[in-house]
Structures are given as C-alpha cells and as structure tokens.
C-alpha cells in the first residue's frame, strides 16, 4: 500500500525567500522608504538646481526664501546638494555590500570547507578585524588618493572579515548535516556539494548581512567625508556637506542637520529592512548575528 505525503495544506514548494520577506511589515515599510529615497536620488536632477552653483549674494541663508534647506557659505543650495548626496551614499552602500559579500562569500566557503586553508584565511581575517575600520580607511585613502573607487575599496576591506566569519560558520554547521554526508556517500563532487547543498544555506543570512553592511558603509562614507578624508570635497556627498558646515555650525546648524537627517533616515530604512529580513528569513541564525 502506497502512502502519499501529507496533502496540500502546505504549498507544493517552499515559498521563495522574497515572498517570505515581503510578508514582514518591517521589510515592507523599510523597503518602501528605501525605494522612495532611491527614486529621489535617481530623478533628483529634475526638481533641483545645480548643487555646485555658487551664489555669492545668498550665502548662509536659513531655510525659506533661498531654498527649502537654505544655502551654505558659498551660497549653494543645500537642498539640491542633499538630494545629490543621496545618489553617492546609495552607490557607496550598494557597491560595498555587493563587493564585500562576494569576496567574503568566496573566502568563507573556502575557509569553511577546506581545512588546510582555514587557519591561514582566518588568521588574516583576525588581523584585519583588529585594525579599526575607520583608521584603516583613512590610511588607505590618504595613501592612494581620494576617489570614489578608493573610498569604496577602503570601506570594503574592513567589512570582509565579518562576512567571511558568517559564511564560514554556516558552512561548518551545514557540512556536518547528514544530508551533506549522504551526498558525499553518493559520490557527489566537492564543488557540486558546495554549490548544491552548502551555498543555498548561506543566502538568507547573507542577504541580511548585506543590508547591515550597506548601512554601515553609508555611515563610514559620511564619517570619512566629515573628517575630510573621504570623497574629494568638491563632490557634494552628505559627509562633505556636513564637513563644510562645521565651521559655521553655531550660526547655521541646518547645513549639518539636513544632510545628517537624510543620512540617518536612509540608514534607518536599510537597517529596518535588515531587521525584518533577519526575523523572517532565519530566526535561528539571526539571533546570534551582529
């Protein structure tokens, strides 16, 4: 007599990662906010003036007649500059997330699966982790010149160890699973086991980690700009706007507050999405992360 599986109350396949994720309220609202910010960043040029146009007669004006967010010491429109900065911030955040996850995933898989590589990779990661990220970035940028590319590289490097550790811990857990051993016993080649049985388990935690990396990269980029060690000062990134606003802070605090608020809201949206993803995708691994 043939038994069939428990009938259709569960869907035939497991629902996709994205389907689960969007059911979560934080993911939905955070994601919506993020989409709006991204749209503003992309289409900002339509409703703003030139962010680097100088206007000597309208310097340090408060929000109101001379623009929604006022003007800075060179008479540039702060609103236009802030809108423009969104594009830079999001670019840095996304680029750092993608690059550091890609590198970290590769190194983590190698370290987790090949014993002889583990010690070497992990000592290097330990070393990298012990160098304070901001100092490392400052040093790298001051040595190789401030461009968007070096800023991204300088932020990527200290993010890699965390990704490697995460991936490695997933690999170490999964490789002990009986279904992986069954695949070994079935003669499946090592790289196929990695691809088929190990890699899929890293996706959910990596998506979550990517959001956190993205958020922290945007903060680091702003901090570097603020300290005068980031993207070249003529580019209106949020960090640079705030850096220039320091001098006149007591007089015109809005030059710092508006880009600061924009940055905080953007990072908050990213982090809320991250928390939501964490809760919905992988409640177990999630708890021990970060």
């Amino acid at each position: 007599m043939a038994e069939t599986a428990t009938p259709a109350s569960q869907a035939a396949a497991q629902p996709s990662v994205w389907r689960i994720a969007l059911r979560n309220r934080s993911v939905f609202w955070g994601g919506l906010l993020l989409v709006i910010i991204a749209l503003i960043a992309v289409f900002g040029a339509v409703f703003t003036v030139d962010p680097i146009a100088i206007n000597p007669i309208a310097r340090l004006k408060p929000p109101g007649d001379f623009g929604l967010f006022g003007t800075d010491q060179l008479g540039r429109d702060v609103f236009s500059r802030v809108v423009n900065g969104a594009r830079i911030s999001l670019t840095v955040g996304a680029a750092v997330a993608v690059i550091s996850i890609a590198i970290g995933l590769f190194l983590g898989l190698v370290a987790g699966y090949f014993r002889y590589m583990d010690a070497v990779i992990m000592r290097v990661m330990d070393g990298l982790m012990s160098i304070p990220a901001i100092l490392l970035a400052i040093a790298l940028i001051s040595l190789s010149g401030a461009t968007l590319l070096t800023v991204i590289t300088a932020i990527v490097i200290p993010e890699i160890p965390r990704v490697v550790r995460l991936v490695r811990s997933v690999v170490l857990t999964v490789r002990e699973e009986p279904y992986v051993e069954a695949a070994i016993a079935a003669g499946t080649r090592t790289w196929l086991i990695m691809l088929r049985h190990v890699l899929p388990n890293t996706i959910a935690p990596l998506i979550v980690q990517a959001t956190y990396v993205c958020g922290s990269a945007m903060l680091t980029e702003a901090i570097l700009g603020f300290l005068g060690a980031g993207i070249p000062p003529e580019i209106p990134s949020w960090g640079n706007i705030m850096s220039e606003g320091r001098t006149f802070f007591q007089l015109t605090p809005w030059i710092i507050f508006f880009p600061g608020a924009a940055l905080a809201v953007t990072v908050l949206a990213v982090n809320i999405v991250g928390d939501g993803l964490r809760d919905s995708l992988d409640p177990r691994i999630a708890r021990t992360m970060r």
Partner: peptide, 27 residues
C-alpha cells in the same frame, strides 16, 4: 550506502525528494 538516524536532517530541505534520490545515480 547509509541511512542515518535523524530523518529530519538526512534530506536537504531545499531539494525535492526526486532530486535527492536521483543525485547519486546521475553522479
């Protein structure tokens, strides 16, 4: 070949039963 103790961890939850059974012969 081997059959393990824990029925809940012996099959990859992301793959269909068919994929699990055919993996070996296809290898």
């Amino acid at each position: 070949q081997i059959v393990f103790q824990d029925p809940y961890r012996s099959l990859n939850p992301r793959r269909t039963v068919g994929q699990s059974i055919t993996e070996g012969p296809v290898n």
